[in-house]
């Protein structure tokens, strides 16, 4: 009788461990995900700008040509600790120069490192997972053209238990839904805007409030949120209920940074606008059309 209890308990523990193992294991892309695709650097630049890679991965306060040196070092405070952006320049040791194309794609689209560990979702792969594979191939080709930096990446300053990377697998399983927030876009422009906002530009990462575990509240999509790691300040809501700007106002804001009152963007949005200003106007118009199409 006692023997049976022990066995049952053992089974429960084993089962729980098995489920934990299954849920938290890193899931990579299929091996042939990039097969047959050729990266184009000119198209890759457009993806790079829309995805805002440089805004987080350039050195702190980089200006001019240094904006393309993805040396890392910017700090991102959060409720779970401070994340430090790593060096993703093509340097073979300090950066990602020695990584294969599938390894880079796994990092960006699945949040999995070449060693098979989870990245923390401060890296917005939950948005990037919606990226088209051709765009991924183009982005990789472009990243490989950028200047090298030998600056070593600094460790994140994240305390236990959030520092246990395996747990990120559980977080992904719970919260990293790949489906679109806006279903059935009415036309091609709104669909392009959805792709820019929800996938590449990862606008929701700052403009959508988060739950207790840092998950995006998809039912409050783009309705505004506190500034992470700060006591005051708010990232404004940009859904139709929060933002009464015309589409022309939104396009102008993404071009010059001027609000309808001719105040300017502040904070990290300045970097976003520096990127968006370099995209074709059709992309800025698509973002405006998408924001207006939200419920």
């Amino acid at each position: 009788m006692r023997c049976g209890m022990v066995r049952l308990l053992g089974l429960i523990i084993l089962g729980t461990a098995g489920v934990f193992w299954l849920i938290t294991r890193p899931v990579s892309l299929p091996d042939d995900a990039l097969a047959g695709l050729t990266g184009r650097t000119d198209q890759g630049e457009r993806v790079f700008l829309a995805a805002g890679c440089g805004s987080c991965h350039m050195a702190p306060d980089a200006t001019g040509a240094a904006r393309l040196v993805l040396a890392g070092g910017q700090r991102f405070p959060s409720d779970f600790g401070t994340f430090v952006a790593p060096n993703i320049s093509p340097h073979p040791e300090a950066g990602i120069g020695a990584w294969s194309d599938p390894e880079i794609a796994n990092a960006v689209l699945r949040g999995v490192s070449p060693e098979g560990a989870h990245y923390f979702p401060a890296f917005p792969y939950t948005a990037y997972q919606r990226m088209e594979m051709q765009d991924m191939a183009d982005l990789i080709a472009y990243l490989r053209t950028l200047p090298e930096s030998d600056a070593p990446s600094a460790p994140h300053e994240v305390g236990f238990p959030f520092s246990v990377r395996r747990l990120v697998g559980g977080w992904k399983w719970l919260f990293a839904a790949p489906d679109w927030v806006l279903q059935d876009p009415a036309d091609a422009e709104i669909a392009r805007g959805r792709y820019l906002v929800e996938a590449l530009a990862h606008c929701g990462e700052c403009h959508t409030p988060r739950g207790p575990l840092g998950e995006l509240a998809r039912d409050a999509w783009l309705t505004g949120a506190p500034v992470p790691g700060k006591d005051r300040g708010r990232v404004p809501g940009i859904d139709p209920a929060s933002l009464d700007w015309s589409e022309g106002d939104i396009v102008e804001y993404l071009t010059s940074g001027f609000t309808p009152e001719f105040d300017t963007a502040g904070g990290h949005m300045v970097e976003v606008i520096a990127n968006f200003a370099q995209l074709p106007e059709s992309d800025r118009r698509a973002v405006a059309a998408y924001l207006k199409a939200l419920p």
């Binding site: 005051r232 010059s256 940074g257 502040g266």
Partner: peptide
Amino acid sequence: GGACGACHKAYRQPDS
């Protein structure tokens, strides 16, 4: 816009 924004980003308290 870039010139206005550069100074505001560095030296203006974010909106509360």
